[in-house]
Design a protein around this nucleic acid. Structure first.
Lengths: 202, 202
DNA sequence: GGTTCTTGATTGGGCGACCAATTATCATCG
DNA sequence: CGATGATAATTGGTCGCCCAATCAAGAACC
């Protein structure tokens, strides 16, 4: 059934990439195996050689998108300073930039939100992503608290609030791009963050 | 083609209601005219008597969902006190409660986010909703500023941030209901709000 | 009795999945 | 090194199904 190893996980990636492009172009409801095959430049039959069914391709697509977000955040973290405040800002900026720079990925991500409620596997992938994010942010917050930069808060709950803010702002950025640009968005998050975590208001 | 007036916009509402239930149950991709008809307890043919096509039904469904949110907010506002701070809290609570109490509507709303990016009409309905919300919140903020309760902020931008927070928190509430309940969510928004708009930290 | 409303069967098309046949890959061995 | 055969990869066509949309005919209404 499934190919063994090594030879061509390239094909899988190629197919997943095409799937993401199709989802971004035509939406979840408009996704067909035919379009994916055409976009990937392969035959229809091959899709079922590398994936059990359409659902499996979608799962792989969501996994790819979340992996990309992970990678972006990790890169931003690796480059930044050691200061918790700065690292936290870098993390948030990395997330917000996704919605602007990697528009295809972000669109697909939002589309999956709608389908998660009807598919356990999609839900699990998303839950794992948010779990990782909460832990990362939580760690930064804990460091900030220890360093005296932040006030004492429940680190995981604060992380959840920050994630919520980032998601919401990204959505606004997507649906009302004229309301404010990414620079303003980052500034907002920054401001909200300062006031939410800071020990004192200006 | 289309029915004149009066006699049975009941049917339209009945169909829209069934559509929303189907969307919440099976998702956007799983929506079929047959299911809608069955759920509404009518024949398939009648759907095309009251609506031009499937798309028109979906547009009506989104309109219904947004109208419900408007109604909820209006009710919460009418009941509350005159104090901007209190009214703002009531508005936010009303939005958050949607995600918990009217779960079907909220699920459908999220599903539409994914499709908006591929349909102008859906996008327009959503944009109008957020426009209204921003204006309402903006007005409350302006009152608060005038009354000296809030610090001076760009009212519309602050409104956008609040909406973003509410959307994001609602999402978290949906996907990770174990992370925190609605009470905590309201508390968070309240806290974030106090620090974001307040003149001073505790 | 004419208009509005409703039905359920029909239609043509596109879907996901499947598969037999073909080609490419590559380790093995003469 | 070059031929060989097994296995992996790929194709394009086919299958049955179900979809949205249509429509002629009938029912309900006033």
């Amino acid at each position: 059934m499934s190919p063994k190893v090594g030879v061509a996980p390239l094909r899988r990636e190629q197919i997943v990439r095409a799937t993401i492009r199709c989802l971004a172009r035509d939406g979840y409801a408009g996704l067909t195996m035919k379009k994916v095959a055409r976009t990937a430049g392969v035959s229809q039959g091959i899709l079922h050689y590398y994936f059990a069914d359409k659902r499996a391709i979608l799962v792989a697509a969501l996994a790819a998108v979340t992996a990309d977000l992970d990678r972006r955040v990790a890169t931003a973290q690796a480059r930044g300073s050691r200061e918790p405040r700065t690292r936290l800002r870098a993390l948030i900026t990395a997330c917000l930039r996704l919605a602007v720079e990697e528009r295809e990925f972000w669109i697909v991500f939002v589309e999956f939100w709608g389908e998660m409620m009807h598919d356990r596997r999609l839900r699990a992938i998303n839950a794992a992503l948010y779990e990782r994010m909460r832990r990362q942010i939580g760690t930064l917050i804990a460091q900030g608290i220890r360093a005296g930069t932040f006030r004492r808060v429940d680190r995981l709950q604060a992380a959840a609030v920050i994630l919520a803010l980032v998601d919401g702002v990204s959505l606004q950025l997507t649906f009302d791009p004229k309301a404010f640009g990414i620079a303003t968005a980052v500034q907002f998050c920054e401001d909200a963050l300062t006031r939410f975590l800071g020990k004192e208001a200006s």
